[in-house]
C-alpha cells in the first residue's frame, strides 16, 4: 500500500528529512505542469517548482492538515507564479496581437515518431493555445489550467483558491468564452 502524503509529512516533521523527497517525486509533475501553463516558460516553471517545494518544506509545521496537502502545495505554487508574473509586469497580460518576438522559449512536448507536417501542425496549434492562454487574466488562466490540465474538480479548485465553487464555475465559463474569442481571432489573423 502506498504511503500517504500525511504519513510522509509526519516522518519529515519527526526529523527524517529525506522522506520529503518522496513528496517531491510525487508532486513535481503536477506542480511543473501548473507553473508551465501559468508562466509559459520552462525555466520559470522549473524555478517556481523549486521555490514551491522549498517553501513547503520550510513551512511544513504550518500545514494543519485541514485541507489536502496537494491543495496547499498548489496554492504555494500559484502564489509563486503570481509573484513572478507581477515582476514581469509588462508581460503580465500579453496582447494576443503581439508577436512572440520577446525571445521567450516555448516548450513543447516531445511527440516522438510523429511525421514532420503533423508535428508542425500540432506545434502551431499548441503555440496558438499558449498565446491565447497567456493573454487571459491570471485569475481566469489559473482555473482553466487547473481544470483542463490538472483535471481538478470544481470543489478542489475552490479549496486551492479558497473561493466559492460557484465563483470557480463562473470563472471557468468566462475563461472558456475568452479563449473561444481569442482563438477565433487568432485563426482569422492567420
Amino acid at each position: 500500500m502506498e504511503i500517504s502524503d500525511d504519513q510522509i509529512i509526519e516522518r519529515t516533521l519527526a526529523g527524517e528529512t529525506d522522506a520529503f523527497s518522496l513528496l517531491v517525486r510525487r508532486w513535481e509533475r503536477p506542480i511543473y505542469g501548473l507553473s508551465l501553463r501559468m508562466l509559459g516558460r520552462d525555466e520559470d516553471a522549473r524555478d517556481v517548482c523549486q521555490e514551491t517545494f522549498l517553501a513547503a518544506f520550510r513551512n511544513l509545521r504550518k500545514f494543519r492538515g485541514d485541507a489536502k496537502f496537494s491543495s496547499w502545495l498548489y496554492r504555494i505554487a500559484l502564489n509563486a507564479c503570481h509573484s513572478r508574473l507581477r515582476k514581469q509586469n509588462g508581460l503580465y497580460e500579453q496582447s494576443i496581437d503581439q508577436e512572440d518576438d520577446d525571445g521567450r522559449k516555448f516548450e513543447l512536448a516531445d511527440t516522438g515518431a510523429e511525421n514532420l507536417p503533423d508535428r508542425l501542425h500540432r506545434d502551431r496549434r499548441a503555440e496558438l493555445v499558449r498565446k491565447a492562454l497567456q493573454a487571459l487574466p491570471p485569475e481566469m488562466r489559473q482555473v482553466i489550467v487547473m481544470k483542463e490540465y490538472e483535471e481538478l474538480t470544481f470543489v478542489e479548485i475552490a479549496e486551492v483558491l479558497q473561493i466559492p465553487v460557484s465563483t470557480v464555475k463562473s470563472r471557468v465559463y468566462t475563461g472558456l468564452q475568452q479563449m473561444r474569442a481569442r482563438l477565433e481571432k487568432m485563426r482569422g489573423a492567420l
Binding site: Y32, G33, R37, D42, Q50, L54, R125, A126, L176, L183
Partner: peptide
C-alpha cells in the same frame, strides 16, 4: 472545440526537481 484546442498544448515530461533542503 476550445477544450480540444487546449489539449493541443501538451507539456514535456517534468524535469527532476532537485531541492536543496536546509539541514
Amino acid at each position: 472545440r476550445v477544450r480540444d484546442e487546449l489539449s493541443a498544448w501538451q507539456a514535456p515530461f517534468a524535469p527532476r526537481v532537485e531541492v536543496a533542503l536546509p539541514r
